[in-house]
Nucleic acid binder design. Structure first.
Length: 494
DNA sequence: CGAAAGACTTGGAAAAATTTTT
DNA sequence: AAAAATTTTTCCAAGTCTTTCG
């Protein structure tokens, strides 16, 4: 049974009286034919002749050109998502209570346009009207509508390459850099608060320790039954941790096991400082598994406290700070100036990976992983064979040169030496690739690279070690991080 | 004040595009 | 030139945090 056959009430509601006469139970329906119809349609599109595909692409480009840009403060800026989302079945992630509900088509009558008073106001499609046209320059969105599944607002906003988003991004990292200046004090403070007479403070201090040490998310409370059951730091429940006085030779170990954002599992066994352990025991006393671990704490009181410690400080700043500082430290520790470019890039990826692991950015093992690993191994074996051959040839050439002592045979030795060196370098590169791939099997690097790592750290590293920025950031990423590429020299320090 | 609404950032998977291999 | 592998882009949410409302 497909996941969607679980939840059909919203579809039943959309059916006409006539349809309801024919279809009484959706779970008894056979959908294989309609499924096949869409699969075939997809195939047909793929099999289209070249010219037809070209035409389709041109049409898409035309749409992008006409609707994909706006003028902000006199500059033409790219829009991130310039189309509304099409109707369809809501999937959601993990065990979502609303899975399979019908997502309705967005009509012009649902859409609010936000633009300048003196701009050319976009025309609604013929025969339609916008819900509203407003001129609010205190917000950044260009259009919005309310989506019918969660009843939340969706927005049309600018692309990350825009000046507006770039400046916001820069600000974000500047806040994180300010945290660097006060983090020692804050750490001292929360250690002190572990002993507070007030339970409220103790919980806050332990939670903050987790957020800082383990890069947990804040964990806002969620409306039950509206979304999948996931948690962050403040919303952890007793059932999500287990205490071990001693485990695998370590003392005071906390075993975390819970579903975080997007239902990604967080599993970790962490030795903690003794007062934390004692406090956790206290927090768990006389509670059921389903009870809140931090019953005297929520994200808004935590953030209020953080605001008092530093202007602009919130829980997520710790994630940004710890991610960026980790990248910087790891790059420093792993990079050697005398390495070749491939080895330096491996070092970069490893530093990036350390951050992704800290932030728990996981991915499913790619479907083709095993095979592609095997292919790589085959290449390595072939290269090794070539190398062995080249070694023999060099040996022979040397013997030959020794016997004949002429110019020609000497230059032949040089040639063989060069070949050998080239093959060795190629083998090294392949092995490096294999290592990188294996270590990256279940780690997703993209999110940290895009959202947590101050791009100036990477740019400075590139400049310092002579690695072209294109090796680290692709075109889109370079556009997003244009501000940093512009700004950072090799001396930049986070 | 707490709850709801609003605005904006962060997230992995799937689709599409591009590159490499056969 | 087709197929396979890899990289990039799109998709569609799901979080965080701020503002507004009752």
């Amino acid at each position: 049974m497909s996941p969607f056959q679980m939840k059909f009430t919203s579809i039943m509601m959309e059916m006409t009286v006539e349809e309801k006469k024919i279809i009484k139970r959706l779970d008894k329906c056979d959908f294989t034919e309609i499924h096949k119809y869409f699969v075939d349609k997809n195939e047909a599109r793929k099999a289209l002749p070249k010219e037809e595909k070209q035409k389709l692409k041109e049409e898409a480009d035309r749409l992008q050109e006409e609707f994909g840009y706006c003028i902000l403060d006199g500059h033409r800026e790219k829009i991130g998502n310039f189309k509304t989302e099409p109707p369809g079945l809501f999937r959601g992630r993990g065990d979502h209570p609303k899975m399979g509900m019908l997502k309705k088509r967005i009509m012009p009558e649902d859409v609010i346009i936000n633009c300048s008073r003196d701009s050319k106001i976009p025309e609604p499609p013929p025969g339609h009207k916008w819900k509203e046209v407003r001129f609010d320059n205190t917000v950044t969105w260009l259009a919005s509508w309310t989506e019918n599944i969660q009843n939340s607002i969706k927005y049309i906003m600018l692309n990350p390459s825009s000046k507006l988003k770039g400046e916001k991004d820069w600000q974000k990292y500047e806040v994180a850099r300010r945290l660097k200046g006060v983090v020692d004090k804050i750490r001292f403070q929360y250690r002190f608060d572990w002993k507070s007479r007030e339970m409220r403070k103790r919980q806050r201090a332990v939670a903050l320790y987790f957020i800082d040490k383990l890069a947990l998310r804040a964990g806002n409370e969620k409306e039950e039954g509206e979304t999948a059951d996931t948690v962050g730091c403040c919303s952890l429940r007793v059932e999500h941790i287990q205490l071990h006085h001693e485990l695998d030779g370590q003392e005071h170990v906390v075993e975390f096991d819970f579903l975080g954002k997007d239902c990604i599992r967080y599993y970790n066994k962490v030795p903690v400082e003794k007062p934390v352990f004692k406090n956790l025991q206290l927090f768990m006393e006389n509670k059921d598994p389903g009870d809140d671990l931090f019953d005297r704490l929520n994200t808004s009181t935590l953030n209020k406290h953080l605001q008092d410690l530093m202007d602009g400080l919130t829980a997520k700043v710790f994630r940004t700070y710890n991610a960026s500082i980790t990248l910087q430290e790891q790059l420093k520790a792993l990079t050697s100036a005398e390495d070749n470019i491939a080895a330096k890039i491996l070092s970069y990826n490893r530093a990036n990976r350390a951050v992704a692991i800290l932030c728990n950015h996981q991915r499913a093992t790619p479907k083709t992983f095993e095979k592609s690993m095997q292919n790589l191994q085959t290449k390595i074996d072939a290269k090794k064979e070539q190398l062995a051959m080249a070694k023999q040839e060099l040996k022979r050439a040397k013997a030959d040169a020794k016997a004949r002592k002429d110019v020609k045979s000497k230059s032949n030795v040089d040639k063989k030496k060069k070949l050998l060196a080239k093959l060795e370098e190629q083998l090294m590169k392949l092995c490096t690739q294999a290592t990188d791939k294996e270590e990256n099997k279940q780690v997703a690097l993209g999110t940290s690279k895009l959202n947590y790592l101050d791009p100036r750290i990477s740019v400075a590293w590139c400049k310092k070690f002579g690695v072209p920025v294109e090796k680290i950031y692709n075109k889109t990423q370079r556009e997003k991080f244009a501000w940093a590429i512009d700004m950072a020299d090799e001396e930049f320090e986070f």
